[in-house]
Amino acid sequence: MLSYLTDDFYNWTRKVCRNALLKVLAAGPVPHHIAFVMDGNRRYARMNHKLAQQGHTDGYETLTKMLEVCYYLNIKCVSAYAFSIENFKRDPEEVNALMRLAAEKLGELSQHGSLLDQYGVRLNIVGRKDMLPEDVQVAARQVEDMTRHNTRAILNLCMPYTSRDEMTTAVQSAVRNALKSDPPNLEITEKDIDAEMLTNLAGSPPVDVLIRTSGVKRLSDFMLWQSCEDTQLHFTPTYWPDFGLTEFIRMILDYQRKAWARSSS
């Protein structure tokens, strides 16, 4: 009984301290858009003698925690690389398990009173939705429709996504728009292509910070267009399910140093 009470007290104190710390951080400039490459779920599972699926479930928990932190920091947009088009090459059993997890979690998110509902977050599924199994497509449509009118923040779940696919689609759309305009305006610019990027169509601001976990130092076909210019890249050795507030705060501090240096010059 006493241990339950101490546990409760500990958790309560922790939450109060965390929220106070986040309020302090929010007193400085915060990124408008953070992108996560949630890498290392399977290696985390192997290291902790868990099934790969459990690793993905724990990874989802981390995402929820991070979204909460971003919400308290007033970060307007979060993008997460949930599933790459290339991931379809994985073991079918694992792909099916991931799709079941996606359908289940999207279903939960579309419930009233869910995290998105509570925080006023609009959810966009960014990528080739047509490649998803039918039940996931239905769940995705439901949650997108339900959150369409939320304006406080944006969550882009990139699945199944690759940046080259996104860039190709953007080029294709820009060419189609140019040909359809009357009279045809064939002078397509960088801006026209930028406007056709899926993230921009979903109303996202430019990516300020990109975080990749698990020690891999490459972008792996994620947000190449959006992060090749003015984006701080953070590569951390931590596996995604272990990613926590301490590392996240360091990234916010780095962003604040950049924002202050820019405004003073």
């Binding site: 080259r164 860039m167 267009w225 210019e229 984006t231 701080q232 890249l233 990234m251 950049k258």
Partner: peptide
């Protein structure tokens, strides 16, 4: 400061 790609070709 963390690395940035400084406009290197994205493709």
């Amino acid at each position: 400061p963390p690395p940035e790609l400084l406009g290197f070709p994205p493709w």
